[in-house]
Structure formats: structure tokens, C-alpha cells
Nucleic acid binder design. Structure first.
Lengths: 135, 135
DNA sequence: GCTTGACCTTCCAGTAGCTGTAAGGTTTAC
DNA sequence: GTAAACCTTACAGCTACTGGAAGGTCAAGC
């Protein structure tokens, strides 16, 4: 099959597939007589694997490691588990951070009248007096 | 004061301050005889405002809008409130997304033995059978 | 006066993970 | 024959910086 069909089946865009080939995340695709890339089920499975790994938050370097494990017949499942748990913790940190940011925003919004006047607790807050630490 | 002191007080790096000047997010700093950038309290306040806005999740274009509001004597606080509420919703979407990703990871990890053997629920999951949608 | 180190300057390149666009070749349907 | 819908490569651009090179300036100590 051509690249657009592989894209449809894997959940990646054709552009992304070419990009992954370019950065050698995947092996160069086979080519037809016309120079078009050709994909078989096995190749699509690999692309799908990447799409799934990206979806749950792994970056491309981590995807590379996961694919290495996937290919390694003598792998130890604890390695994959380690990568997953580490990523899970990273996501948790990011979630905590975003929640904290959001709470500040909610707090700002609740203290702002939000009317036609120029008085605004939000802008006062952002402009806010230098905090202790810096002085 | 020189740029490194302004950086220390504002919470931005000197590099970042120069960058903000370059992309015209802030006005060009005054210069001393030696060509060094000079900052007064007012300039530092503006930098601090930017640092705070970035900290709670606004991108540079949104920071520009917030600063425009800050400078506008005839502003309406509902505009600032709108920006904050919109950003809050964006953060919420992102948080929800990250939580969903993390749950998948936790689920994977819980089903993986994580031992010395090659059998791995995680890798099976990532490699997983094409989902209905694509077929 | 000279050196040393900590500043400052500009400019260019690189980061992650693509996406958009241009310029062109191929295939397919009518 | 031709138009649409594919495919190819190559290069630029996105966000928000950060790092580094090459060089000018300043203050302190000898």
C-alpha cells in the first residue's frame, strides 16, 4: 500500500511518516518502480505502535527505546515497565503544575468584577508588587 | 540598572529579556554610553508582569494582549477576565488529556509483571491489534 | 599600567515534532 | 487528452527560548 493508506491505518499523517523515516526512527520504506514508498502490514504495525506511544506521552527518543525493546527477543519486561512508570511520574508532575497554574487563574477571575470599568484584580495581580524573594 | 539585575528582579533571564525586545514584545531598552541596556523600576515591573503571565500559562501573543490592556486607561476588566477564563479552560482541557494519558500508562503498568522475562503487557498493548475505527 | 574576571554586546545555530509550501513526477478516471 | 488526486524532494516556519562564538567594557588588585 501507498503512504496515505499506511497513514490512515496507523493514525499518523503521511508527513509524519516521512519525517520518522528521515530521522531514522523507522527503516526506509520499500519503494515501488515509480519511487513511491510501499508499506506492508508489518510496517503499518510499527507505525501504529509509534502512534500509540506518542499518544500516551512518550517523546521520539523514548519511542525509539520502546521499539528497541519491542524488537528485542531477550528483553526484560521490567525495562518497559520502568519507562512507563517514569513517564507516568513526569505526566503527574506536569498535571500538578497545570493544576496550580489553573488555580491561580481561577482565583484571579473570581476576584475580578469583569465589567465595563478599568479596575481589574487580574491586571493588578499580574503587575503585583515584587515578591519578597526578589528583594 | 544593567540587564542582569533586571533579570534577577523580574524573574526572567537576561537572554529572555533580549529576546522579548527583539520580537518587540517590549520597547527597546534605554542604553548607557557604553551601549549597555539600562532598566528602571518601571521597565522591571513590565518584565515582571510578563514573567507572571507566562508562569500562569499565557503564550507570548496573549501576553502582548494583556500588556495592551494593562496600558489601556479605558480598558474594560471583562476583557482581562475573558482572557483568563479562556486560558483556564485551555488548561483544563490539557489537564484532562494528560490525566487520560496517565491512566492508560497506569493501566499498562499494572498489567505488566515487570520481571526478567520478555512477556510484556505494555509492549503488547502498544503493538495492539488495529482498533475498529481504522478498519 | 596591566591583567583578570565578570559583565555586556550582536549574531547565528539549535532545540522538538512536526506542518506548510513549492516544484515537479505518476496514476487513474473520464 | 486532461484534470484530479496521488506521490516525490527540499526547504522554510512554528514556539519560546537557550547555547555559543567573537568581541567590547568595567572594576579590582598588583
Amino acid at each position: 500500500m501507498n503512504i496515505s493508506e499506511a497513514a490512515r491505518l496507523s493514525g499518523l499523517s503521511a508527513k509524519t511518516i516521512r519525517y520518522y523515516e528521515q530521522i531514522k526512527l523507522i527503516a526506509p520504506a520499500a519503494r515501488g518502480d515509480n519511487g513511491y514508498r510501499q508499506y506492508d502490514i508489518k510496517a503499518v504495525d510499527e507505525l501504529h505502535f509509534l502512534a500509540r506511544a506518542r499518544d500516551v506521552g512518550f517523546d521520539l527518543e523514548e519511542c525509539r527505546q520502546l521499539m528497541d525493546l519491542q524488537r528485542d527477543r531477550s528483553r526484560q519486561s521490567l525495562h518497559a515497565r520502568g519507562l512507563v512508570l517514569e513517564k507516568s511520574q513526569q505526566l503527574q508532575s506536569r498535571i500538578d503544575q497545570l493544576i496550580a497554574m489553573q488555580q491561580v487563574l481561577q482565583d484571579m477571575a473570581s476576584r475580578c468584577k469583569g465589567d465595563e470599568g478599568p479596575d481589574c484584580a487580574i491586571l493588578e495581580d499580574l503587575a503585583g508588587w515584587q515578591e519578597e524573594e526578589a528583594l
